[in-house]
Write a protein that binds this DNA or RNA. Sequence first.
DNA 1: CAGCATCCTTCCTGATACTG
DNA 2: CAGTATCAGGAAGGATGCTG
Lengths: 126, 126
Amino acid sequence: MRKENSSNAINGRQLRGDCGTAYTLSLIGGRWKPSILWKLLDGRLRYSELKKAITGVSERVLVLQLRELESDGLISRIVYPEVPPRVEYELTTLGYSMEALLQHISDWGAAHRPQEEDPLPVAVEN
Amino acid sequence: MRKENSSNAINGRQLRGDCGTAYTLSLIGGRWKPSILWKLLDGRLRYSELKKAITGVSERVLVLQLRELESDGLISRIVYPEVPPRVEYELTTLGYSMEALLQHISDWGAAHRPQEEDPLPVAVEN
DNA sequence: CAGCATCCTTCCTGATACTG
DNA sequence: CAGTATCAGGAAGGATGCTG
């Protein structure tokens, strides 16, 4: 039972309506969503492949985030009527339209995050 | 009392270490952070101005998010030793380096979010 | 295989009152 | 003015067992 008129929800909706930034972040804001999108950029994957590729995510959460991505129109869910069941996930056109944005976000992070220590084992003489 | 080795925290740290995407999102992921950064792009603002400019945020949360932005190096906090007190917040170089990224995120959202005429499902949850 | 259902924990956010 | 303290609620994420 969700409280649809909690201040929290109201604030959320308002922000999302306000600017595109909040809307975009609400789509990729889930903890695992970037990872999922990232994997799917290389092509469609089935559920078990995703689960294996994204280490640490529980089934419940993975399914939840997939469902959200689906209802937000970023991915599509393809069910094969077979036994045993087989489901594949694929980016939609909208999903692929995020590629440049994801790349941008990733690049910024890679460029600006504090690197604790260069993990490069190669001796860089300078 | 924080659980530093909960699965939750471990996953968070791991993701942040993994790719730049998660790191970037952890910086701007707070609900109000994009708004704060957005306002500060126009120049430094003092606390009360921010509070007024960002409607709906409570003092506690505003301060928390400001502190996080500060410790992440995106903004700097300038205290004037006066009576009455006076504090201003300003983007750092790192903060300003996000401008293009924020614009990109905002643009994507503005371009792709469902329009009013297409009434989006109003959180059907029963 | 691809998931649901259930229960639980943690984290995030907020309201309100008070202070240097 | 610019916060802090306290109390609270809800949302997100997680562990585990079970099913078509």
